[in-house]
Amino acid sequence: MSLRIWYNRTFSTASHYVEMIRRNADQRQFEIYVTHPKTHSLMLQIADYAEPEPTLPLYEYPGYCLDFCKKHNIDIFIPHFGMSEIVKYRSEFAKIGTKLLAAGDAELIGLVLDKGKLFSELSTLKSIELPDYYVVSTVDEFKEAYHQLKERGHRVCFKPASGEGGAGFRIIKETLPSIQSLYDPCGPGILLDEAIRMLSSVPEFPPLMVMEFMSGHEYSIDCLASSSSLLAAVPRKKVEGRVRLLEENELLIEWAHEIHKVIPLQYNFNIQVIYQKGKPKLLEINPRTSGGLYTSCLTGINFPYLAVKLLLGDQVVVPEPEFGIVATHIEKEMIMHRSFQ
């Protein structure tokens, strides 16, 4: 008998993970359910069952998820959107027979998603180097943080303390752009005076991390773990453009083990690191599958399916990863067979 897996609103590259679960080595059968508010989402096209997802206030969203799982007899729910709220209701999902594939409980995920709290928690680890940073909520704190970082010789950037991806990331510029900037690609730069003007418009704003700007090679470390043990860690280096190197970087693999001892995330999660002057520094941790995890699966580790096996309590044997692989990806056309208009 097949098990039913539901993916709620998530990014389109999760379609790769659906196919990896379907093509599992155990030949286990799954039915994939997908919902998404965008009626032309690729995820809706690759599902066995799909329907548009309503737009709801976040406080109402877990109720919708519980109703969906109950209505469709969902065995495994892999939440992305609203995950930090959904995990608060884990016991309610368990009562209706649905297992949540989420990297931790509400407290742990809340800690990881707040970069200020996360950095504070990891500051006790001598082996993990953090960037210079300040968490600020007023314009005076912002200006003081900026000047402190400049005095240490840093270029300065800032981003929301809680957020996903590159949303809100800005690099501070001190001089007016030249006319050439009108012909260059748009970037995340913002003039210092403009940032101060906008932040001054309110007495207090949601916490920002003001930090040193790091410009070296960036790595994503894709991880598979139980709550007690890290089972796999694959450092994925951004070489250039879309080119990635799956690198047996022993230092970063050891970092993943050290971080997991303090932040015991489970199933699939991702650690992001940037090198600065030859040394790696932690950027953030994502308590979910990363958008580029499908590349790390080229090592021979089926991260999405093994996470499902862990959730089900099955024995998990992780193959020895094949490192040294250089990979890229290209766009591919796809005819849409479903219409929800």
Rank of each mutant, 00 (worst) to 15 (best):
M1W: 04
L3P: 01
Y17D: 09
Q27S: 11
Q29N: 06
E31I: 06
L44P: 12
L44N: 11
I46D: 08
L56E: 05
P57N: 12
E60L: 13
Y61F: 07
H72P: 08
M83W: 02
Y89T: 06
Y89L: 10
T98E: 02
K99W: 04
A106M: 01
L108D: 11
D114V: 12
S120E: 15
T124R: 10
E144T: 15
Y146A: 07
L149N: 08
K150W: 02
E151F: 07
R155T: 12
C157K: 09
C157I: 11
F158A: 07
A161E: 14
R170M: 04
K173A: 12
I179G: 04
Q180K: 07
L182S: 02
P188A: 07
D193N: 15
E194A: 13
L199W: 09
P206C: 04
L208A: 12
E218K: 00
S226N: 02
S226P: 00
L230E: 04
A233T: 01
L245N: 10
L246M: 13
E250H: 06
W255Y: 10
V262K: 15
N268S: 15
F269W: 15
K279Q: 14
E284C: 08
C297V: 06
G300P: 14
K309N: 06
G324F: 11
V326R: 12
I335F: 13
